[in-house]
């Protein structure tokens, strides 16, 4: 048996069903396979880390990886989170993947971002649902296979904004893609934003009358290519907000267009090609 030495690779080699299960129900596995239930206030992270990165050592990545998020989540349904990697200039390792985990959510594993070699991605912003007071963890996997974890605490504000299941206003079809390019920064990188019109139903809500769970329907994979080159692959879970948005830095390669392809957990596929000129 070959060893799976990277979470991204491990993740990509799982069967689609197993991947879907992990992204949707990580918390459920913990709850059912952990034997005696842990106290509600116990830190879920050690068990989560062991489950998502089995047999791996996570080092303190606070110098390599930053998580920007509001301390108080104003809108529990849409909490902006930005992941930044800050490798020293003389460090020639690259970031291979970043795993985003929202510890206290029903489905903690929010997303796995796989960064193509040479993509120059050092910043990824998305929006997540936060159900409770929770730590958010990001784990960067470097090209030497080492794993580095950083954490940030977020306080869900409660209030009337429930984190899920708002009806999609208007008549924009599910799976509609939007793509924007933003001006170049000083270091030559640009930023792009991919948006997917999608309710990203969690499947965790129980119908209080029928006692049945509403089936999950969420954006599961997205790939972004710049010209012919793969730029970014995203495996998403149900903790990503409705109408998922991903904004990331990258190094332009001269490609004339971007290609975005995605699929949701029901098998629906969507794609779009966006010329550089028209996307700005």
């Amino acid at each position: 048996m070959q060893t799976i030495n990277s979470p991204a690779a491990w993740f990509s080699r799982l069967s689609p069903g197993r991947r879907r299960f992990l992204l949707a129900f990580t918390g459920g596995i913990l709850a059912t396979s952990g034997g005696k239930a842990a106290p509600a206030d116990a830190d879920p992270w050690p068990a989560l880390a062991g489950q998502i990165f089995p047999g791996k050592t996570l080092q303190d990545g606070s110098a390599l990886l930053a998580i920007d998020a509001p301390y108080r989540a104003e809108d529990a349904a849409v909490v902006p989170v930005t992941l930044r990697t800050i490798l020293p200039a003389d460090d020639h390792r690259q970031v291979r993947s970043i795993t985003l985990v929202i510890d206290a959510n029903p489905s903690p594993l929010a997303a796995v971002f796989t960064l193509a070699p040479g993509s120059g991605i050092d910043r990824i912003a998305t929006r997540v649902r936060v159900d409770d007071y929770t730590n958010i963890h990001a784990v960067a996997e470097l090209s030497d296979g080492t794993l580095w974890a950083a954490a940030r605490f977020v306080k869900a504000s409660g209030g009337c904004s429930a984190p899920a299941l708002k009806p999609v206003a208007g008549d924009i079809p599910i799976g509609t893609l939007r793509f924007r390019l933003f001006p170049a920064g000083e270091d030559g990188r640009r930023e792009a934003q991919v948006m997917v019109r999608h309710p990203n139903y969690s499947g965790m809500q129980m119908d209080q009358i029928s006692r049945l769970y509403i089936p999950a329907d969420f954006v599961q994979t997205l790939t972004v290519r710049q010209g012919d080159d793969l730029l970014l692959t995203i495996a998403g879970g149900i903790s990503i907000s409705e109408n998922p948005s991903f904004r990331f830095s990258f190094r332009p390669n001269g490609g004339k267009s971007f290609r975005v392809e995605g699929a949701d957990s029901t098998g629906k596929r969507f794609s779009g090609t966006f010329p550089v000129d028209s996307a700005a």
Partner: peptide
């Protein structure tokens, strides 16, 4: 109420 009620019960407890 079905979709948001359980969240309200949770988030208004404090």
């Amino acid at each position: 109420l079905r979709a948001h009620g359980p969240f309200y019960l949770h988030s208004f407890r404090p």
